[in-house]
Every structure is written in structure tokens, then in C-alpha cells.
Amino acid sequence: MIAFLGQGRMGAPMARRLTDAGHKVTTWRRGTGISPAAAVDGADLVITMLSDPAAVREVLTAALPGLRPGATVVEMSTIGPEAVRELRALLPASVALVDAPVLGSVGPAADGTLTVLAGGDVSGCREVLSVFGTVRALGPLGAGAAMKLAVMNAIVPAQVLLAETLAYGEAHGVDRDVLLGVLAGTPLGALAARLAVPAAETRYSLTHAAKDLELGAWEGATVAGAARARLQEARAAGLGERDLTAIAEHARGGRASSRAVPLNLATVPPTNGMYSHAVRAGDTLYVSGVAAFDRDGKIVGEGSMAAQSEHVFQVIGRILADQGAGFGDIAFMRTYLTDMDARAEYGAVRRRYITGTPPASTTVEVSRLFMPGLLLEVDLVVALPAPRPVTPGGR
């Protein structure tokens, strides 16, 4: 028996293909009344196709009591290799794990023409996965998740670039159809044709495209970082549930808006829902207080100022990298310490990360922070590079 967890745009047609192929399938989606544990009870194969790492972690945690020894979990969402490693630690050793995200959208999911990017031992599930399309076994656990993000770091920014290309042409009197015709003769022709008429039906949502680039963030990814910022802005403007091709409509509005764009990253511990990790307003990034807790809300390095400081600066580094920035771009840093006598330990860690001219900063002692056991919290104001304005007729 196969349990399929997730019945969204991709999950529903994929589950139908399994049923049509003669497999006995139990499906689960939020709000149906059945628990994930009940849905996976007795299943030999458990497939997850959910929105993001947090959703996968939540659902599989709830499913743990129903997972039988010897079962295999095939994680087909786009969550990245780090989240795959966390799932391996979450699942019992008696339960196998394969990561197998897919390339393709709703149409290929229904037609069985997806490309399945598999990491881990697929020998026991390859036949089932082939129902969805072509299976590419890529190596050890996590290889599929890494490959998916690598591919999306090329495909998604290319579509943002083409959206801005069409907007540039319109602003400079270039005939849109002629421009599309010229692009059709280039390697970007197929993507340009897709953007020519934004899809009425959402096949790959703008929100999911932004999420994929957030997961794939890495220091030095300037092109992907710029595309990510444009998508985050479009999402904040209310286009999140539209198809990614709606980015062409958004780009026609000209240069990026200076409105506040909330940023919540999959690469750092989640917030409690009362604040965002950061907010970008034009060329300025405001980073909420960063403290030393993990994805489960537990304190990291309890009792150690050095350990908590190290964790805080690692998280700050991920937030900065997500926006194409580094520690040298910090304009202002404010640090709250519960014990000023431990500032030397904090300072030693800080000096390893901030190596150039230091930013403006304030360090204050407070009696306590929002969670007992936290020893410090750091918030930031970061100056981001502004895009160069395009001068009509100029170079």
C-alpha cells in the first residue's frame, strides 16, 4: 500500500496516476479529519508532496506513530538537502528515506512526464516513481534535493530576466512581438514564449518560485539573489498565488518598489508568527533580533555566550546571503546581553565575522530576553546595493 501525503496542485494528479496504474493508495490532505499517522498506517511506501520544509517536518512528525518498520519514505517536495538530512535524523533507522523532487508542473504531473531527481537507494521504489515520469538516480541521499535547487537557480532567474527584458523593450519602444520573435531564435526562446502570455491557471506559483530561490540561497549568488528579491517584492504585492509567468506583469511596472517586503527564510529557524526574519524596504534591510534557538524553538548552546554567539552569527550570515549581502554591508548592529561581563566572549566571536571596518553599533545589558536561557540577541540595519537605473538610449 502507498500513502500519499499532500493533495495540492502537484500531489492530486500524481496520486491519481498511482491509482490508475493499479496501486492501492491512501491520500491525506489538511482539513480532512484523518491524521497523518492514520494515513500511513500499514503503508509500505509513504510519499510526501508538500509546500516547504516546515510542512514536511510537521506532517512526518505527526505520521511517526503510524510508520511501520521497513517502510520507505519518498520525499518529493522541494525542500533542499539540509532539510533532507534533518528528516533522516527525525525518522527511525528502520524507515528508509529517498529524496525525489521533480522537474515539471501540473501538466506533466497529470501526463506522467515529470523528471524525478532521486537521491538515496531507489531500488525498492524506482518502479513506483517511474509512474510519474523519467527517474534519474543521482547518488546518495540529498543528491536529488541539491540537484533540484541547482536547476531552479538557473530556470527561475532566467524567467525573471526575460520578464525584465520584455519590460525594457516596452519602455524603449521595441515592438513586443518582434522582440519575442528575435528571442525565439535564441536558447531562451521557449521561456520567452511562456512569458509572452502569463498563464491564467497557476501551474508553478510565484510564491513557490520565491521559496525555491530562498532555499537555494548561497553566498555569492548575485543573479539568483536579485531574482529572489524581485519575486519577494511581487509576492508582497499580492501576486504570490499567481503563476510565475505573472512576474512579466509585475516587471512592467518599472524599477523595484520601495514598499516594505517581509522576508521569511526557509534556511533559518522559523519565527513564532509574530514577526518576520527581516523586512526589505528599497535598498535597506531591517533584520529582526536574532537569538540562539533551533528549528524546534530550543536554545542552542545553553549557558555558553560563545556558543550562542556563534549560532547567532551563522544565522545572520544566512539572512545576509539571501539578499546578496555580507557582513561588510551591515550599517548598524545592536546587541542585547544579559551579562555584560561576558561581552569579551561575544566580542571574540563577532571579530571573526566582522573583519573590516566595524559598523555603527550599540551594546546594552538587559535583565532578560524573551526566552529564559537566552544570553544575547542581535538586530541589524543593512545597506543593500541599489540597482543601476537604465538610461534610455544609453549604455
Results as ranks from 00 to 15, higher is better:
A171H: 14
R85L: 03
I34S: 00
V390K: 08
S205V: 10
P269C: 03
G373P: 02
G303K: 07
R343M: 14
L231C: 13
D212M: 06
T19F: 04
G356V: 10
A360D: 15
A171P: 09
L97A: 09
L206M: 07
S51W: 05
L191K: 15
A200M: 10
L64M: 14
P140K: 13
A193M: 06
L285C: 04
A163G: 08
S276E: 11
R88L: 00
A292K: 05
T186S: 15
A229G: 05
T335V: 15
V156N: 06
G394N: 03
G139E: 08
S258K: 01
L103P: 01
R68S: 14
S94D: 09
A55C: 07
I155N: 04
A3P: 08
R203E: 15
Q159S: 06
A109R: 08
R68E: 12
D294Y: 09
S276T: 11
G317R: 04
L215G: 03
P53M: 05
R136G: 09
L117E: 00
T335L: 11
E302F: 00
H172Y: 05
I299W: 10
V128K: 07
R68I: 07
G6W: 09
A199I: 00
D111N: 13
P157F: 08
T338I: 01
L231T: 02
V84E: 03
I34G: 00
E75P: 01
D175M: 07
G107L: 13
A109E: 09
V25R: 13
L244Q: 11
E302C: 03
V95G: 06
L380P: 07
G328W: 01
L375H: 06
L265Q: 01
L231E: 10
P36L: 00
T245H: 10
A171K: 13
M371I: 14
I330T: 12
L162G: 02
